[in-house]
Amino acid sequence: MKERTKVKANIFKALGHPTRLWIVEQLADGEKCVCEFVEEVNVDFSTISKHLAVLRHAGVVSMDKRGKQIFYSLKMPCLLSSLDCIDVVLNNQIQHQITLMD
Rank of each mutant, 00 (worst) to 15 (best):
E3I: 08
H51W: 04
K32D: 02
G59V: 03
D87S: 12
N91C: 09
A53L: 08
D29A: 15
I94Y: 12
C35I: 10
E39F: 05
T5D: 10
M63C: 09
I94L: 14
K50G: 01
A53K: 11
R4N: 06
I70G: 01
L90I: 11
Q26P: 05
E31H: 08
Q95N: 15
S62Y: 08
C33V: 08
A53V: 04
F45C: 01
E3G: 04
V54W: 05
R56H: 10
L80V: 02
F71W: 15
Q26A: 08
G16R: 10
T47H: 11
L83E: 03
T5C: 04
F45Y: 10
A53N: 08
H57V: 04
T47M: 06
I70V: 12
E3R: 15
H96D: 14
V41A: 05
L74Y: 02
E25M: 14
I86P: 01
H17K: 15
K13W: 14
V41S: 02
R56E: 15
R66E: 14
F12C: 06
A14I: 09
R66T: 12
V41H: 02
I48H: 02
R56P: 02
R66H: 09
E25S: 10
N91S: 15
V38C: 05
C85K: 12
Q26G: 03
V34W: 02
L27P: 03
G16A: 13
E25T: 11
F12Q: 03
V34H: 01
D64K: 12
G59M: 03
E36C: 01
K13C: 09
S49D: 02
C85M: 09
T99E: 14
N92S: 13
G30M: 05
S49P: 00
A14F: 08
V89C: 02
D102N: 15
M63Q: 11
K8Y: 11
E31S: 12
R20Y: 06
S46L: 04
P77S: 04
A28K: 14
S81I: 04
N42V: 09
V60F: 07
K50L: 05
T5A: 13
E40G: 00
S46E: 04
P77I: 01
L15V: 06
K13A: 11
E36H: 00
H57I: 03
